[in-house]
Structure formats: structure tokens, C-alpha cells
């Protein structure tokens, strides 16, 4: 419980730190590269394959029950935009980016580099977490878009070549509306914000030597994955009630 309060404190001071400034020059771009570019292949491969699997399972099931596959595409793109793309991207980034951030900041903590920053009047949150926070929010949205597109295309090709669904019927965007897009965008931004805060917090709490860094890395992966799931649940339920009609 005390951990959660401290975590909230890190989030608040991250937001305050964005206004305060005091981050190193060019750091945001460097972090965008580390978080975004280096995760592209990872996101593309994992979301592509899961897109194929989902369509395969859905078509199998529809075949078993109704045999009408014309609805698969239109329903799939709604689920991809409003949930699968942001959440699966978030889960994958929680693993890759969360572990990376915690390992970096954690090793700075145990080698007293964080204390050395503080001795020069630098707030570690401003210097270390804020640039990663901004980069992560932007890049999560970008990667969600990329991952969603790949998922959709991979799913469409699976439906066409495995189940003979007409491509025109599958790639029909007419039932997609702004409600799905905005719910997806809100989720992507939220996960993008949560992952660096949770993992940065775990990194700053690292103690001891190499074991401490290992602990921080594991805790960051689990913590940010759980955060993504929990936020997804909250946002999905909220979306269901707030956007209700529009999502149907």
C-alpha cells in the first residue's frame, strides 16, 4: 500500500517535472529511438502472429455455429482498434521497455549515480523518468498504430487464404466509428504513461548490487504488465458505460 502511494508520488512529480524542465538536451529523441525504433520488429512479429491466430480461432468458431464469415472482418477491426492493438502492444512494451528502463535506472541507483545527480541539484525524476515518459507516450501510440495495422492485415490474409473470405468484405471499415478509435487512443496513451512510471519507480527502488538490479527488472515487468491489464479493465468498463451505444 505504501508502495502504491509512493508510485503515485512518482507519477505526480513526473507530470510536474514536464513543466519544470531540467532534462538533458536531446534525451527525448534518444529515448524515442531506444523505446520506439528498437521495439518495432518485436511488436510487428508478435502482433502479426496473434492477429492470424485470432482470426483463425474466430473463423473456426463461426464455422462451427453459423458458417457465416462475413461479419468477422468488421467485428475484428473494431476489437483491434478499441482493445487488442493498444493492449497487446502495451503488454509487449511492458516486457521489453519496462525491463529496459528498470535495468538502466536500477544500475544507476545501485552504483550511486542517482545520488551523484542529486548532489548536483538534479531531481532524478526530472532527469531520468520525464524524458522516458514523454518518449514512451508518443512511441506507444505510434507502435499501437503499427501493431494494429499489421494485426489487421495479417488477420485479413489468414481469413482470405485459409477460409476463403473475400478481401473486400473483410477489409470493410464502415462499422468502425470514432468511439473505437478514441477508446484505443486513450488506452495507448495511458499505457505509454504507466509503463515508464512503474518501471522507473522500480528502478529507483533498487538496492544492493546485481541482485537488486535483477529484482528491479523482474518487478518492473510484472508491475507494468499488471498495470496494463488493470488499466485496460478499468478503461474498458468505463468505455462500455460512457460510449455504450457508439461501440455497438
Amino acid at each position: 500500500m505504501r508502495g502504491l502511494i509512493e508510485l503515485w508520488g512518482v507519477f505526480v512529480s513526473t507530470i510536474a517535472g514536464m513543466i519544470r524542465g531540467g532534462r538533458p538536451k536531446g534525451e527525448i529523441v534518444r529515448q524515442m529511438h531506444a523505446i520506439g525504433n528498437k521495439s518495432m520488429l518485436f511488436i510487428a512479429v508478435t502482433l502479426g502472429f496473434i492477429g492470424m491466430v485470432m482470426i483463425y480461432q474466430a473463423c473456426m468458431q463461426f464455422n462451427r455455429v453459423t458458417g457465416d464469415l462475413s461479419q468477422v472482418g468488421v467485428q475484428f477491426i473494431r476489437l483491434v482498434t478499441s482493445d487488442f492493438a493498444p493492449t497487446l502492444t502495451g503488454m509487449m512494451l511492458a516486457t521489453r521497455v519496462g525491463a529496459g528502463i528498470a535495468a538502466e535506472i536500477g544500475s544507476m541507483k545501485v552504483t550511486e549515480q542517482v545520488d551523484a545527480l542529486r548532489m548536483s541539484g538534479v531531481l532524478p525524476v526530472d532527469y531520468l523518468i520525464v524524458p522516458r515518459f514523454i518518449a514512451s507516450v508518443v512511441m506507444t501510440v505510434v507502435l499501437t498504430t503499427l501493431g494494429g495495422a499489421i494485426m489487421y492485415v495479417a488477420g485479413g490474409l489468414t481469413a482470405h487464404y485459409q477460409f476463403g473470405v473475400n478481401l473486400k468484405i473483410f477489409f470493410d471499415l464502415s462499422l468502425l466509428n470514432p468511439a473505437h478509435l478514441s477508446l484505443g487512443l486513450v488506452k495507448a496513451v495511458t499505457y505509454g504513461a504507466a509503463i515508464p512510471v512503474v518501471s522507473g519507480f522500480c528502478g529507483l527502488r533498487a538496492k544492493g548490487s546485481s541482485e537488486g538490479v535483477g529484482w528491479a527488472t523482474t518487478a518492473a515487468v510484472i508491475g507494468s504488465s499488471l498495470a496494463v491489464l488493470l488499466l485496460d479493465f478499468i478503461l474498458s468498463v468505463a468505455g462500455f458505460f460512457v460510449l455504450g451505444e457508439a461501440l455497438r
Binding site: T95, R96, A99, G100, S209, S210, V213, G214, T217
Partner: peptide
């Protein structure tokens, strides 16, 4: 590569496992 190597290995392992 020591303690830093352990952190890197953990990172690589979870990513490889996810893929």
C-alpha cells in the same frame, strides 16, 4: 559481463520468451 550483463540477460530472456 558482470552485474550489467545479468540485467541485459533478463531483459533479453523475457523478450525472447514473449516472441
Amino acid at each position: 559481463g558482470g552485474a550489467v550483463g545479468v540485467g541485459r540477460a533478463v531483459n533479453a530472456a523475457v523478450v525472447a520468451a514473449a516472441v
